[in-house]
Design a protein around this nucleic acid. Structure first.
Lengths: 133, 133
DNA sequence: AGAAGTAATGTTATATAGTAACTAAATCTG
DNA sequence: CAGATTTAGTTACTATATAACATTACTTCT
């Protein structure tokens, strides 16, 4: 059985997967409105939250935007590399590094629950493009 | 000589330093309005940007909020530990770790410019408070 | 099956966050 | 000091997100 909510999730996930760059909630909203007419932000945000919980979508905190998960090694917290030039986002998984991070901040007695690691810079292809110029 | 803009910066910095938890831009705005009357968001955002550039204030990306820098080892990118219970934020500096991070994501040819590392969890004092209960 | 309760979704309205574009004042330069 | 340039103020707006309530669909009990 497919609930209405699950349909929104599926459709949004498909949309996000078509983009290699993060997509804003209101872009999603506008796109879906073209297809389905009237539609409230709430619907989008609810679907996006569910997708995040299911580990299908990352919220890019430093952009207020969303991107489909690439590596699906089951909800491993990811490191996002965001290119300032072309907007593309690469996902890396580095458990050791996040472990170190947990240890460093754990020294003061802090217990980590959620890691937000986002790095802004220039991606490989934009780097080489600029090197040529 | 103190320009008008610098006065806003000083006043906002003072305000942020009084709080150990991050403060939202519109909280700053509301507070300053009580003192100075009419005041536009632009004023606040301009001052906050300047403070960030001067390395006096961090923007907490995952909260859309601002906090005064604690460690002033000159604009070292910081790691922020954010307590979900009490809202307090601790700042850590770990150059080695950020170096590792740069290396990991640099493997694909990505060159990092700005690091956003924010960890949500429970701080030491909230941990012990909960352990007692 | 039908009534009663619960959970999921839709709807309306509003709160919160941030910026663009222009005006006015201050400062700098010759 | 006139003209140019930078800095700050003002107005209006756009973007992001959530609260609160209404409605619909689902469940469970009889």
């Amino acid at each position: 059985m497919t609930t209405r909510g699950e349909m929104w999730q599926a459709e949004i996930l498909r949309l996000l997967r078509q983009n290699h760059a993060p997509v804003k909630a209101y872009q999603v909203l506008a796109t879906l409105r073209k297809i389905h007419g009237k539609l409230a932000p709430t619907t989008i945000y609810r679907a996006l939250s569910a997708l995040q919980e299911r580990g299908r979508v990352h919220r890019v905190e430093s952009l207020n935007a969303f991107i489909a998960c690439q590596s699906r090694r089951d909800k491993q917290p990811s490191i996002l590399s965001i290119c300032n030039e072309c907007g593309s986002v690469e996902e890396s998984v580095a458990p050791d590094l996040l472990n170190d991070l947990s240890n460093v901040i754990g020294e003061t007695g802090f217990s980590p629950k959620r890691h937000v690691v986002e790095v802004h810079g220039t991606c490989a292809s934009c780097n080489s493009r600029k090197a040529q110029a």
